[in-house]
Design a protein around this nucleic acid. Structure first.
Lengths: 206, 206
DNA sequence: CTAGGATTTAAACGCCCGTTTGAAATCTTC
DNA sequence: GAAGATTTCAAACGGGCGTTTAAATCCTAG
C-alpha cells in the first residue's frame, strides 16, 4: 500500500468514487472521505473548492472516458457498412463493463450513477445530457439504421429500457449475485452475453 | 386543504413518502418532513420510534399493497390455463403503474425504491426479499411455464433486466418525458404498452 | 365532572456536517 | 540557501441532524 505514490488530488478522487458508490453522494462525508484517502480534511476544499465540485469532477472523469471508449468501439463496428444489432449493442455495453471490472472500484461508479438518477438532481441531469448527450444520439442513429421498421418514438422508449436494465445489471442491484467459484471477469462476461441477447430481442420486438 | 381530516400518523406517512422520493432517505430530514406534515418534530419519534422505523413503515405499506395487487392480477390471468407471456407481464406491470398514477405522489415511491437499491443497504435488501420474495418467485414460476425453452439461469438474468428497466421507466429517470399535451394517464398507458412489447420480446429472445 | 392515559408541544441534548482560517511545512526557483 | 509560492495541517465556525425530556394539552371512561 504505497498511497504516497499518488498525489493528494488523485487519492481524494479515488476515495470519493469508492465512498460515493457505497453511501451515496450525500451519505459520504468529507471526513470519512479524507480519512480513507489519508489526507487532511481541508484538502478537498483546497484542491476542488467544494464538495459539489468534487462530485462534478468524479462524474466528468468517468463519463468522458466512457463516452470516448463507446464512440471508439462504435467506429470500429461501423467499419462494416451493415453491422448487426448485436455488434452495436456490444459497442455500447462492453466499454461500460470494462470500466466496472478494470478498475479497483468494481461496480462502484455505476452505483454512483444510479444514486444520481434517483436523486433527480436537475442540475446534475442537465450536466449529464450536455456532456454526454452526443454519445447517446450517435448510438440512437446507429440503432435506427439497423432497425428500419421502428418509429422514432418507439426506438427512444426502448433505448430508455435498455439503459435502465444496463445500469441495474451493472450496479448489481438484482437478485443474481456472482457465485463464489466464478471469477468477477467470467461473471461479467456472462452478464454481457445475457444482456446483449435480451436487449437485441427487445429492440427488435414485433 | 383540510389536513386536519388526516391523523398525525397518516400525515407523517404521506409527507415521508413525498420527501423521501424527492430527496432520498438520508436527504429528507425529520425537520423538513414534520414541517411539511404540519406536525411537531417529536411526533415522528412518538408514533414510529425512530426515523428508521418510519422508513420501514413507508416501504411496508406500499410493497404489501403492490404484492397483493400483483398476485391478484396474476390469479385472474391464470384462469386461462395457457396464458400468454404478454398477459403475465401485464399482471406484473399494471399494478405498479396504477400505484404511480393513482396516488398523489405520482412516481414518488418508485424513486424511493430506486434510492434504496442504490444505497445497497443490506438490511433493507433482506427486508425486501423476505417480505416480497414470494411474489417474485410466483411470477418466475408463471414465466417459466410459458417459456419452456429457457434455462433457469437465463430466466433469472432476464427477469433482473426486466425489473431494472421497469424501475427505471417508472421513476422517470430516462430521457423520455411526458409531453405537455399528454395526460399522465395516457403517458403511463403508452409506457405500459411499450414496456410489455419490449419485455416480452426480451424474455423470448432466441 | 373529573381522573388518568394518550397526544402534542417547545426546548434542549450531543453529534456530525461542509467550510474557513491562519500558521506550519514543503516544495521551487534563482 | 534564502525568498516566495504551493501545499498541508489542526482547530474552530455556524448550522442541521435524530433523539430525548418534561411540561402542557387533549381525549375518554367511570
Amino acid at each position: 500500500m504505497k498511497a504516497a505514490t499518488f498525489s493528494t488530488r488523485d487519492r481524494i478522487l479515488g476515495a470519493a468514487e469508492r465512498l460515493f458508490a457505497e453511501r451515496g453522494l450525500e451519505g459520504a462525508s468529507l471526513r470519512q472521505l479524507t480519512a480513507e484517502a489519508k489526507v487532511n480534511l481541508a484538502a478537498v476544499n483546497y484542491h476542488f473548492g467544494s464538495k459539489d465540485n468534487l462530485i462534478a469532477e468524479v462524474f466528468s472523469r468517468r463519463l468522458d472516458q466512457l463516452g470516448e471508449d463507446r464512440l471508439a468501439a462504435l467506429a470500429e463496428v461501423r467499419v462494416d457498412p451493415q453491422p448487426s444489432l448485436e455488434a452495436l449493442l456490444r459497442a455500447f455495453v462492453e466499454p461500460a463493463l470494462a470500466m466496472t471490472i478494470g478498475e479497483s472500484g468494481g461496480s462502484a461508479f455505476m452505483r454512483v450513477l444510479a444514486h444520481a438518477y434517483a436523486e433527480q438532481n436537475e442540475q446534475l441531469r442537465s450536466f449529464l445530457s450536455e456532456r454526454y448527450g452526443h454519445v447517446l444520439k450517435t448510438f440512437a442513429e446507429a440503432f435506427a439504421a439497423v432497425l428500419p421498421g421502428i418509429s422514432r418514438e418507439t426506438l427512444y422508449w426502448r433505448l430508455d429500457f435498455v439503459a435502465g436494465a444496463l445500469v441495474y445489471a451493472m450496479a448489481e442491484f438484482g437478485l443474481i449475485r456472482r457465485r463464489p467459484g466464478v471469477s468477477e471477469k467470467a461473471h461479467r462476461a456472462r452478464a454481457a452475453q445475457q444482456f446483449i441477447a435480451f436487449a437485441a430481442a427487445g429492440l427488435r420486438a414485433g
